[in-house]
Amino acid sequence: MNDTTSTAVSPVPASAAPVRDEGLGEITRRTFWEANERHALGIGFIVFVLLLWEVIPHILTLSRGMDLFFTTPTQVAMTLYNMFASGEIWPAFKFSAVAFSVGLGLSIVAALPLGVIIGRSHTMNAMLDPFITAFNATPRLVFLPIILVWFGIGMWSVVVVVFIGAVFPLLINTYAGVRNADRLLINVVRSFGASEWQINKLVILPNSMPFIIAGLRLAIGRAILGIVVAEFFGGSSEGIGVMMNDAAGKFQVDIVFAGLVIFMALSLVMVGGVKVLEARLSRWRPENVKSF
């Protein structure tokens, strides 16, 4: 933030807009392959693995026992399609999606203001830091029995597990970001008569945004983990995790994989969403430090 490299000489600033580096003369046009190499290799390898997986049963004769535990990508895709087409997956899907959204949403609503308060107040920081550290250092699974006792088997238990998974990384990152806030900028807005609330809105939050985004990314991972953990270990009798667990018990391997694909897709969509958010929020940053 401390841009002391700004001694660049520009004695007649009004004359020209900042000129981008034109390179050394000739612009070399990148071929299609050069421009898309990374993506092509990445996608190509996934396709390769899926194909290999697909043809295994055709080239190897699997024993009777192996066959029972085996499935192929096309079978998984068919199962997934049928579950959505027939609508049988919707109740489980809805349950998990709602628990995930509510849990993550609550953690954001709780972590941001609390993070700002803890980051701004030495007293609150001293009081709450050991508590948060201890809580955060404990594996979430440890809390599952007591959460089940308090909230019962069902939606609320899953929501709570997701919440306590997601809230700590967000909280810790938010207050780290807030404590990192630029004193000079705070003084600038104070000098114009800003209230405490305006200081938070105009300086503290935008200044902490890189930390908050990084926290959000962690929180999403923890929230998905929370769903899986809660549903696998008896937190509810519904949801994708429960569906996978039941299917595994009945050796319905394709359904287990279908659930896995759904969780993968959820992760990818959420990470993509954070990337879009990050790009929107970092338009003001210099190119070379765009990545948070």
Binding site: S191, F192, W284
Partner: peptide, 29 residues
């Protein structure tokens, strides 16, 4: 409001454009 400071290290909000930086004081007013 009767005073305003020009800071040594500029103190511009990096996430605001020139226009929005210049408007800061008026906005807070």
């Amino acid at each position: 409001q009767d005073r305003a400071m020009v800071f040594q290290e500029f103190g511009l909000l990096p996430w605001r454009t020139v226009l929005n930086n210049v408007e800061l004081g008026l906005e807070l007013k």
